[in-house]
Amino acid sequence: MTISANWYLLLAAVLFCFGLVGVVSRRNILVVFMCVELMLNAANLTFLTFARQQGTMNGHAIAFFVIAVAAAEAAVGLAIVIAVFRTRGTLWMDEVSTLKN
């Protein structure tokens, strides 16, 4: 390996922050969900980088579990999106504020 692990960690940090920007600045529930997936992937990249750097495979197992949890999260989250759209007719996060007051 000619390039150090820092490059991979920096790439993961950039990906995570793109996801963070999307979560805080976008108001469409679907796009916010996609940005959450991006953040989960950035975490996975960090796990795999350190797994390769330490020479142990535990990070691969954790990455596997993260992928499984992301699949479960996408299934339940998109079901909630469908339920919200059915009752409110909108995907706008600002308009879904019944629990606010």
């Binding site: 390996m1 150090s4 692990a5 820092n6 960690l9 920096l10 940090a13 950039v14 995570f16 922050c17 963070l20 920007v21 805080v24 390769r52 750097q53 020479g55």
Partner: peptide, 20 residues
């Protein structure tokens, strides 16, 4: 978020070259 990126990038830089 850009502040988070700056802090993390600085931390990665401070760690020095991490070898495999």
């Amino acid at each position: 978020a850009s502040g988070v990126l700056t802090v993390v990038a600085l931390a990665i830089q401070q760690a020095g070259e991490i070898h495999w």
